[in-house]
Design a binder for these strands. Structure first.
Lengths: 327, 327
DNA sequence: AAAATAATTGCAAGCGTTATCAAAAAAAGG
DNA sequence: CCTTTTTTTGATAACGCTTGCAATTATTTT
């Protein structure tokens, strides 16, 4: 039937406690035996019994990810990247698409060692009874009740403006969600203004409210952009989807990208590369974000730091084919 | 610390094996003691230790759901509905967004009792070593290697045509993905043709290829629809997203729904109700789909049927405000 | 080469449950 | 009132694993 530690022990000709230690890479067992055990284990197709492990060690090496809503593709991509990042570790991840409350119940049932949450999800703080949590994104400006990972949004937008400015653009419009209380969206526009000032083109500041973050929101924002005077030569799209909509709308009007219009998108996900026009974008690459989140939660579990902190990751500019010199 | 069965035993003044039986509602313990034990357990806030339970009973009461890609909202809604449906049962669900191969690994690690998969995911058949699987949707026409749940698509489309036909529509256009090998999409158009024939309006058969299943695909199909002669009075949208795009495009052209154009959408998800125009739709309601999937996998686990079968669920027509009599 | 020290290995005690079966208590029968 | 039968309870052995600690073996020291 199922291969246990004892079966491995028998074949490897050592005691089963040695097998256990070998499998856990304990320094108390000789390298040679460790190798032998590992080889036998593999041959027999040994798989550790999680329940037994958990029962004695009180740890599960399982981390729960609360993902209450099927949201924008950026988050979806982040989730898959996080899931991937765990493959390099002894931990596994389970996902709950329930409300935070029921997710917490499930996670307690599984006795997960740690939890990853997104700012969007509004966690029931009380129910965490000393189980480590890492949060992605901030709830409100300045609020850091948990260890929090976030991108340096200000820097990201500055990177976008800088890039366009170097290419000779002055009339750079920011197309994003403006009329909102979402701190992230607010920070992005404000950063845009700041950056325009920094490069002394604040007289060209020009913002278009997309009213949302989706494809159609970008698509419909193009009308407004093209009606302005002077017509901008470059656009900063506030999200992956917004930029996608903008590109399509421009193409339909036969305005060529990047010859007649440059566009830089916020968000840095692999999908940017495979868009109709490979997109120049700014943001923390989603795989880095994922790696950081994963290593943070593991550190937290293994070192049990207590404080809430915030870590702002440095974004990068990825230049592709949607931007060019302004002639 | 954590309250165990032994703590309960001590307080209730019985042996801990009696407590175990009482908690599992065994007929071998007296009603009176059962009540007493349950009361004490509650008072002490006893929570059963899943790991210990698993270790001895060999069952985890956990079911894995393979969801490799973040796909159309219909699937996302189905996933959350399935997750909800499990709440009525002793089982819990874990989700893997990995490739089917790695998902299987994770599931093996957790020793899930069963697996739910979507036809889209192309499972590695070999790796299932007698763990029950339920599949949603069919891979290819007629292929049922697993117990499979699916909607009766033919019936659904017929329902749509019937509804429109009763309202006096003849020029009913089907807007969906036509140029594809996806058996589901093919079945839908063919069902459309069949239904049109059934109601003797096959001379009005009119299909528009959306080239995809997304919002923008629907949006752009409207041009083609409006260029035809005669202009149809009703549209069957091939998916939730397609229909959404169609509605928006019609509204932009100030063609009022349902006065000037009726539209029935394929897919029956709650979001249909909250669209810009509450949408008349056909399909198996997702919550029913979810319930059926959940009860099937549980039956399979508990009764261990061996055969592959396919269960076609009966779709329903949900009439809302996107359809009206043709005048 | 013997003694001391260090590096490995093995033993055995749990972890919190369930499940089997023997023991005890209660009920029934003679 | 003592057997016999039935109902109820309680020991106890797994389940597969980790983990101190004791036992063994290998390596230094003297």
């Amino acid at each position: 039937m199922t291969v246990t530690i004892k079966d491995v022990a028998k074949v490897a000709n050592v005691s089963y406690s040695t097998v256990s230690k070998a499998l856990n890479n304990s320094p108390l067992v000789k390298e040679a035996t460790k190798k032998k055990v590992l080889k036998v284990a593999k041959e027999l197709g040994y798989e550790p019994n999680l329940a037994a492990k958990q029962l004695v060690s009180k740890r599960t090496e399982v981390i729960g990810l609360v993902w209450p809503t099927i949201e924008r593709i950026v988050l979806a991509t982040l989730v898959t990247n996080i899931s991937n990042a765990f493959k390099q570790t002894p931990y596994s991840m389970i996902l709950s698409v329930d409300t935070p409350e029921t997710a917490m119940e499930t996670f307690r049932k599984f006795s997960v060692d740690g939890i990853i949450a997104f700012a969007e999800s509004d966690l029931p703080l009380e129910s965490f009874a000393n189980i480590p949590v890492v949060n992605y994104g901030v709830y409100k400006q300045g609020d850091v009740s948990y260890p929090t990972i976030d991108a340096n949004h200000e820097k990201a937008i500055e990177l976008a403006v800088d890039h366009l400015h170097r290419q000779g653009h002055k009339h750079i419009v920011y197309a994003g969600l403006l009329d909102t209380t979402d701190p992230l969206q607010i920070e992005k526009v404000e950063s845009y203004r700041k950056a325009m000032k920094k490069f002394s083109i604040e007289n060209c500041i020009h913002e278009v409210d997309t009213k949302g973050l989706d494809w159609q929101d970008g698509y419909h924002a193009v009308d407004k952009i093209l009606q302005s005077d002077p017509i901008p030569t470059a656009i900063i799209g506030g999200s992956y989807d917004i930029s996608g909509g903008i590109v399509r709308a421009l193409q339909e009007r036969e305005i060529s990208i990047p010859e007649e219009m440059s566009i830089v998108s916020y968000d840095n996900i692999p999908q940017m590369e495979t868009m109709e026009v490979p997109m120049t974008c700014v943001g923390v690459p989603v795989n880095e974000l994922a790696k950081e989140i994963v290593s943070s939660i593991i550190d937290l579990i293994e070192e049990k730091e207590e404080d809430a902190w915030i870590k702002k990751l440095t974004p990068v500019l990825t230049v592709r084919e949607s931007t060019a010199f302004n002639k």
